[in-house]
Design a protein around this nucleic acid. Structure first.
Ligand code: MN
Ligand code: MN
Ligand code: ZN
Ligand code: ZN
Lengths: 138, 138
DNA sequence: ATATATTTTGCAACGCTGTTGCATATTCAT
DNA sequence: ATGAATATGCAACAGCGTTGCAAAATATAT
């Protein structure tokens, strides 16, 4: 496990630091999306707030994680499962937020629906956010 | 026009004030969605920042306007066109953000696509945000 | 129309989230 | 091991939104 984290960081041309290893571990162990606040709590406040912001931004830039816009204007982050690279994300999947447990899921196995727009409009990117109850909470 | 604004406010059991009339006029004249910052600019800073926050929140509570979550974590507001009432919104339509002019459209005439979720998940609400180029900018 | 009660507004102060500059510490390459 | 490059922590700051409270505006009753 720690080996694969090493690989992820090195192939992204990032220094391997305690901080980055710990944050990547949190994502891998969680499975679901995490917020900045989640990471602060889960890490036991061992590293600085600013460092977490910078680490998350770096990971997004490198295509290691992607952001998930939410209805309450917080930002969630989740590991990229598809072949995302530096500056080129391919995370076009539905995101699901459970109203009971609060978990945010990346539904990457679900087909993205076709969205219709009026004549003259053209689509570049589609974000779909679904609220409901997850399978663990039903 | 001012008469219909009067009606909107009174049927929502709200006092008719200069402030609320002005903000409703801005929405009616704009046609597209507005942010808090937009309103501050358009109103010429004649009323307080806090009053705008409270007015927007009141309008949302009363079912006069609805919020639109955006990918850059700002909040946009738009007039409710469907029969929204206090505490019960029915604004299930696609929102479109033009990457050229920045306008946010409520596409209430477009059919909402069917989103598939895995077995065991149930849907309560769907938010669809489309980025692209609008008909005025193509 | 006037007086009273209710609601709204503006101001000041505050909290939360995220950012930047810079000196120090850590990691990397030789 | 040494020096260069990179990452971190700290402090300070900015922006956005919230709250308490007194003054002003609006609605209601007489
Ligand atoms: Mn995702
Ligand atoms: Mn809308
Ligand atoms: Zn759940
Ligand atoms: Zn446009």
């Amino acid at each position: 496990m720690k080996n694969s984290i090493n690989t992820i960081l090195k192939t992204s041309q990032l220094s391997v630091t305690t901080n980055r290893i710990k944050i990547l571990e949190l994502f891998q162990n969680s499975g679901n999306a995490l917020s900045h606040a989640d990471i602060e709590k889960l890490s036991g406040k061992h590293f600085d707030r600013v460092t977490i912001y910078r680490t998350l931004q770096t990971f997004v830039d490198k295509g290691i994680i992607h952001t998930i816009p939410t209805a309450d204007n917080s930002i969630m982050y989740a590991l990229c499962k598809e072949a995302c690279t530096s500056g080129h994300h391919h995370d076009d999947h539905v995101h699901f937020i459970c109203e009971v447990c609060g978990s945010t899921y990346c539904l990457d196995n679900i087909s993205l629906p076709q969205v219709n727009v009026p004549k003259g409009f053209s689509i570049n990117q589609t974000n779909i956010l679904v609220h409901g109850v997850c399978k663990n909470c039903k």
